[in-house]
Design a protein around this nucleic acid. Structure first.
Lengths: 359, 359
DNA sequence: CTGAAAGCGCTTACAG
DNA sequence: CTGAAAGCGCTTACAG
């Protein structure tokens, strides 16, 4: 009945591989679980073979209730949890998607994650999350993601080159790439929507628009430049204030100052929705009516913008579309339908002007 | 040089197991990749042994540049990606945490996820997310999570019993359990903070508070009852309105109506922060000053509440603390430091009154 | 109803 | 610098 027990971690050395019928074995009761129980341990404890354990654990038929009960009891006693690696190796399981976000606390990230999660779930994929801002060691987080997933999509930002390296061999689809595209990518382009916005401002009679931009280096962002250009081409002489980061707080501070300095200000184009919320707050505190006296527009199209009064007009990104394109490309690369190397695949999603109450 | 090739998926039958030196093999060039390349295929293509492939792929030393180059080229040509299962089986990798959230689009979820992610990353754990609202088939999502992770924490709600079943053998820590606790749990208790809030309202001279509650069945929620009780014990005769769900929209609609019906209303206790944002919006639209005429308080302590003007007073949950307790319990169960069965381990985190501008 | 054999894809000693 | 052997923990046919 007893069968060769596996060597415990402690005594495991270049041990002679036990052969069938290698004699009686001491199924020692370890005082403290030195290592996680395996199917082997359960089999030994219950006095059955390994495949009988499999049958019991997986609720397969072809096993007597008595045996099943005995096995399950032994498994519980040993705190047996089947190894996902052992199982995965034989059963396969190519269904793990990695998603890289920059900071889950920024409302943009969860909205993206929600879109990806929903789509992935519909296709039977699980998603593993790496937040390069919240993870103390972002390099490790990225590398671990590559090791545990079958395909990765997400924001790689300025460290794209290095992180793609760390991701190893998994196919990766970069979202809104900031630099040169090394792999497949989904671009997010505000260009046309910025033009629509500028047209809209003209049509409602705005005279003195201000751009409340944000960038790390104090210089106008790419997006800010796009806005300035569109305004200038329509004859405006727009002012610009560049916040050190895209927070509501900075947006509010910039707006308070702008309100004092540019008395005729009648529109604010914010770097994004979160910044724009700060703009709204500053206007409210200054007793400035929105949209009556000042029109306010954000960028991103977060659902956040519908929670405030007035609701926030914005250049919205269809994140469901972004997720769809990214998954499409990623799964295409995986299946071989799309080239996995050589010319990089790129898709583009455009912002669109979404007028709510604030503009 | 050539070694026994593994059987391709197509011809794989109860095939005779190739023995060492079983003769020449047709390393056929499959026209379309029928199955994912393995280390074996790369070894064959490069004319080396499997462990030489390992050395090349993992950047280990003890391999000539020439050989390494050849192996890497073969790997790239075959689109070889090492199996995480094969690797995990030998290298271990007990570092995957599953997090169950109910809806990532509700701002509470990402704040919780951020806290968990940050803590998990600090301990070298990856986190896999399951959203039981966004996943079409939540049962499948939960089950898959159990199969791919080493421990699970999260919101199981009313289906806790069933889902714990589906999660299989992984240890699970339930967050804010709604019913009977079947496994370990971290409770989140607003009780004391509700008392503090009621005291505060008394001290600032509130006379006619209204509770804007939310629940699926139209009856006051547990939390709503707690609020009513605390108010009544202080001599108030509070009104209550129960929204069909905890959205800003419903919060606004309920408030608009309450403002008409209860002219002397001077405080609103909302079911949560999102609902409270709707209350703020309704007040603003009605021209009612907050906190001058009406004080508004939410529950949860979301950072969202700092983005609006006036900023939202709230009963805040320390989600970092929740995450810490949950991980502590989960990892304790895993290591055996805490009992994995029998008496369930429970921790409790309390809300606390967080006064910002709105109350 | 139960077990002996083979194999999933990888890495880790150990020899040369 | 390179390879033959063993084994990680599981399941899937195949026999009895």
């Amino acid at each position: 009945m007893a069968r060769p027990a596996r060597l415990t971690a402690v005594s495991a050395q270049s041990g002679t591989c036990a052969e069938p019928g290698a004699g009686p074995v001491s199924v020692s009761e370890p005082t403290a679980a030195p290592t996680r129980a395996t199917i082997h341990d359960v089999a030994a404890a219950a006095g059955v073979s390994r495949q009988t354990v499999t049958r019991a654990m997986n609720g397969m038929y072809g096993i007597s209730v008595a045996t099943k009960g005995r096995v399950l009891a032994a498994a519980a006693a040993l705190d047996y949890r089947p190894s996902r690696f052992g199982r995965g190796l034989v059963m396969g399981g190519e269904h793990q998607l990695g998603l890289v976000v920059s900071d889950l606390r920024n409302p943009y990230s969860p909205e993206l994650a929600a879109a990806v999660l929903r789509l992935a779930a519909a296709k039977g994929w699980n998603v593993m999350l790496a937040d390069v801002e919240l993870s103390g060691d972002s390099d490790r987080a990225v590398q671990a993601l590559g090791a545990q997933t079958d395909v990765v999509i997400g924001y790689l930002g300025s460290r794209a080159a290095e992180w793609i390296q760390r991701l190893g061999t998994v196919p990766v689809v970069e979202l809104d790439p900031s630099g040169e595209v090394l792999r497949a990518a989904v671009r997010i382009d505000p260009g046309p929507a910025v033009e629509d916005l500028a047209d809209h401002l003209v049509s409602v009679g705005v005279r003195h628009p201000v751009v409340v931009d944000a960038s790390g280096d104090g210089r106008p962002s790419q997006r800010g430049v796009l806005m300035l250009d569109a305004l200038r081409r329509r004859g405006y002489l727009p002012e610009i204030a560049v916040a050190p980061s895209a927070t509501a707080e900075h947006g509010a501070a910039m707006t308070t100052r702008a309100l004092e300095r540019f008395r005729r200000l009648d529109a604010v184009l914010a770097f994004n929705d979160v910044t724009a919320l700060g703009v709204l707050a500053a206007c409210r505190r200054a007793g400035v009516d929105v949209p009556g006296a000042v029109r306010v527009v954000g960028v991103d199209g977060l659902s956040l913008g519908t929670l405030v009064a007035p609701t926030l007009s914005t250049l919205a990104v269809d994140l469901d579309d972004v997720a769809r394109q990214a998954l499409d490309v990623a799964l295409g690369m995986l299946s071989g339908a799309l080239p996995r190397s050589g010319p990089t695949v790129q898709r583009t999603v455009h912002h669109r002007l979404l007028l709510r109450e604030s503009a």
